[in-house]
Simulated assay, not measured.
Amino acid sequence: MNIKSSQTLVSEALKEIKTINTDEALTLFNDGKCNLIDIREKGELDKTGRVENSNHIPRGMLEFWLDPEGPYFKSGKLDMTKEMVLFCAGGLRSALAAKSLKEMGFENVSHIDGGFAAISQSDFKIV
């Protein structure tokens, strides 16, 4: 049995996806050019706060909520024509999630390097 480590999966994902920093993300967000998607679990948001006006889609539901043909699609929740900018706590889950969205056919996808840890040290407003 040849099982890839989670570190290998993240490393492979990072070679295939777009990674942006918090300044780039903030510009996209403030200019209304992206859907800022927090994929952390609800308990993480409750504990550390969330980015004001961001969208929360738990990692486990991301593909289901963004599948327009699926029963769980959240119609009208996101602008499907804008860039999907994902973040998690530190940037590992969001790298895997961005790769998954690319595999689904989303062309304009990125994730924020350093995740919420970096965001909380930036000019994003945390509520």
Results as ranks from 00 to 15, higher is better:
Ile37Gln: 11
Ile37Cys: 08
Ile37Arg: 14
Asp38Phe: 14
Asp38Pro: 13
Asp38Met: 09
Ile39Tyr: 04
Arg40His: 08
Glu41Asp: 05
Glu41Gln: 14
Glu41Ile: 06
Glu41Ser: 06
Lys42Ala: 06
Gly43Thr: 01
Gly43Gln: 01
Gly43Leu: 04
Gly43His: 02
Glu44Arg: 11
Glu44Met: 09
Glu44Leu: 08
Leu45His: 00
Leu45Arg: 08
Leu45Met: 04
Asp46Trp: 03
Asp46Leu: 10
Asp46Val: 01
Asp46His: 03
Lys47Trp: 02
Lys47Gly: 00
Lys47Ala: 09
Gly49Thr: 05
Gly49Gln: 04
Gly49Glu: 02
Gly49Val: 05
Gly49Lys: 12
Val51Asp: 00
Glu52Tyr: 10
Glu52Asn: 11
Asn53His: 14
Asn53Gly: 01
Asn53Thr: 07
Asn53Arg: 13
Ser54Arg: 02
Ser54Gln: 04
Ser54Gly: 02
Asn55Thr: 10
Ile57Thr: 04
Pro58Val: 09
Pro58Met: 05
Arg59Tyr: 15
Arg59Lys: 11
Arg59Leu: 14
Arg59Asp: 01
Arg59Gln: 03
Arg59Cys: 00
Gly60Asn: 11
Gly60His: 11
Met61Cys: 02
Met61Glu: 11
Leu62Ser: 08
Glu63Ser: 10
Trp65Leu: 06
Trp65Ile: 02
Trp65Tyr: 13
Leu66Lys: 10
Leu66Gln: 04
Leu66Met: 15
Asp67Val: 08
Asp67Ile: 08
Pro68Leu: 12
Pro68Thr: 08
Glu69Tyr: 09
Glu69Val: 03
Glu69Leu: 09
Gly70Phe: 10
Gly70Pro: 12
Gly70Ser: 12
Gly70Asn: 01
Gly70Gln: 07
Gly70Val: 09
Pro71His: 02
Pro71Gly: 02
Lys74Thr: 10
Ser75Ala: 15
Ser75Thr: 15
Ser75Tyr: 15
Ser75Leu: 12
Ser75Glu: 15
Gly76Tyr: 13
Lys77Val: 01
Lys77Ala: 14
Lys77Glu: 09
Lys77Thr: 03
